[in-house]
Design a protein around this nucleic acid. Structure first.
Lengths: 346, 346
DNA sequence: GGCTATTGAGTTAGCGTTAACTTTAAGGAT
DNA sequence: ATCCTTAAAGTTAACGCTAACTCAATAGCC
């Protein structure tokens, strides 16, 4: 009994292509998959008919059989941060030629919401995932769950050292060190640090900040290190607090560029000059960083490269039969000096 | 004959849940779909077993039967423009509770690449699409194709007036008018305009710019209107050209904020003061706009609202049996005055 | 008590494709 | 002529799920 829902003209199926050609569905399927079975003559006939009917293979049906969705999940903490937007773009560009599409999930820096997003992607049976995680350092449960499902995945930006998984990012310690080192060279003595939350990147950069100070035998009390968030508003608020610390800081290493942008606003509003009173440096080399009130010195994390490399790694994990060993790729940060730190050294 | 590929422990299926419970697969399916057939007792037993086995329904198989993918395609010209990133975020947030995921495709402002992305989404049989199109005004072929496929879709940001489709955005003419009007009020006489390319938004804003000038009986020669691109670099270059126009413009209406940011850079580099020498206004109220070198006046396009509304519209199109009529929603722009235009009027 | 609803299941038949196997016909070697 | 190989198809049975239908048992009614 023909059972046909909805009145509309349904999409063309292989069956339709095969019918007037007097070939079987399998023949059409084989043509599409470039199976060597088919003779050039038949292939040509089939291809012609496919074009005539504007046939497009049904990915869903195909997925059901092959167990491949050709969907890649990307989980980021904040798509509006151009750092992640650029990564997303690079990933999509990299995987597109191979037929993959990218689903982007936002966690809003919330560990729980991130876990939900990941669960959803698991349920959707994506072929692999790339995750910039907002989980606190110890919390690796969700990653173990991903691995339990035998789902290929690559972590980016935020490293979980105890976990043996593929990773692409820059060394956060190097970032913190490079930024701090730069301010020291520029003659800053009382260098403050607006740090991120308890996630790995925040800790790494703090560590780098400390080790740079130590190497130069600079003693800076703990009150110069304050917790900020990830955005400009928190950067603004935190900087205001820092301005009351005595002696006043003459340099600030910010967790990232948005925070730095907020900090700059606070400093300018206080009537102070950047960089002569206070030098500022951020991280991430966010778009517009050089268009800010005071062009912002920053440490570049080469987001495009992170996207590309992670996509490459993931594709390898997905497409190779024998799962390759997890690989950790550490890219090196790059110092970009703009006005916000351009002051004479000693 | 059992035919089982790959050694691994395959995901749990309905069959597995049903087996030791002595119920049929359909019963399990009905429980999951909240079908009223099932008694509370059976439902409970099934739910318990589902949890025990950590069963997750297979979306692919479900899609094949229901002809619904619960995937929504979003096509934007540039994900790195925070205007679009915010829209993307808002859309994802809106549709997530209903079980949809969002696939983001970047067209890079290239009409051809946009068409390819749309074709891909069609082939993937997404449930609906939201498109901020980069097609030139006349080119509506691709939209007709989408409609031919009976695929629900909503245009955003860029309107194609000749097309009878759903749309959400702000009136570009209103944007251009509001921005220009503002500069006139602030006493600018020689107001230049850096316009976008030949896409609808560019034309609309130009029109608004012209009608505002007209209403105030201001005669501004055509050489004050120059074509820019969409980004800061082109804004920078174009502004440099504008600075050589005599008499020098004392106000610039920029196509969008990135262009304005570039223009600001050029003006400042030329040793001129903003806003006393030249007032600048952009459009889009991009993140960081108030953190720019000179905090940028702008016309807000309420990107979040665009995302929300378009998602709502699309869901209606998808979920209602009888396709509702195309609806055009025009949001009103909002003037945001910051330093770049804060000068005394006449 | 016989007849008709109602409840709570189960049966059957796909959805559109592919993997694995089978078939047919032609060609070549012996 | 017989056997074996190969090329070029076709057949069959899933993939995991749901829609539509069927069925049995209980309940309700006069």
């Amino acid at each position: 009994m023909a059972r046909r829902r909805g009145g509309g003209n349904r999409p063309v199926r292989m069956k339709d292509v095969a019918k007037d050609l007097n070939v079987s569905v399998v023949t059409v399927s084989k043509v599409l998959r470039k199976h060597p079975d088919i003779s050039p003559a038949t292939r040509k006939r089939v291809l012609k008919r496919i074009k005539e009917l504007d046939y497009q293979p049904n990915w869903i049906a195909r997925s059901l059989v092959t167990r491949r969705t050709y969907i890649i999940g990307l989980v980021v903490p904040d798509l509006m941060h151009s750092f992640f937007a650029e990564i997303a773009k690079a990933i999509a560009q990299k995987v597109r030629p191979k037929g993959y599409i990218v689903v982007i999930a936002n966690s809003d820096e919330d560990p729980k919401s991130e876990r939900q997003e990941i669960e959803l992607l698991l349920a959707r049976r994506v072929d692999g995932m790339i995750v910039a995680s907002a989980q606190p350092p110890g919390q690796t449960g969700i990653f173990k769950r991903i691995r339990g499902r035998e789902m290929p995945f690559v972590l980016i930006d935020r490293l979980f050292p105890t976990l043996d998984v593929s990773y692409v990012g820059v060394s956060d310690e190097a970032i913190g060190e490079m930024a701090t080192e730069h301010l020291i060279e520029r003659g800053c003595q009382w260098i403050a640090h607006i740090r991120g939350h308890q996630i790995t990147t925040g800790i790494g950069r703090l560590k780098g900040y400390r080790s740079a100070l130590e190497r130069h035998a600079l003693k800076v009390p703990d009150r110069y290190v304050v917790k900020g968030g990830y955005g400009d508003t928190t950067g603004y608020d935190t900087m205001k607090k820092l301005l009351r610390v005595k002696p006043r800081p003459d340099g600030v290493v910010c967790y990232n560029d948005p925070v730095a942008a907020g900090a700059i606003k606070a400093i300018v509003e206080a009537g102070l000059d950047i960089p002569s009173d206070i030098a500022v440096i951020g991280a991430g080399n966010v778009r517009y960083s050089d268009l800010l009130r005071i062009p912002l010195s920053t440490v570049d994390q080469s987001s495009g490269l992170i996207g590309e490399q992670s996509a490459e790694l993931l594709l390898e994990l997905i497409e190779s039969k024998r799962r390759p060993c997890p690989q950790k790729i550490l890219l090196s940060p790059k110092l970009i000096v703009r006005d916000s730190s351009k002051r004479d050294g000693f």
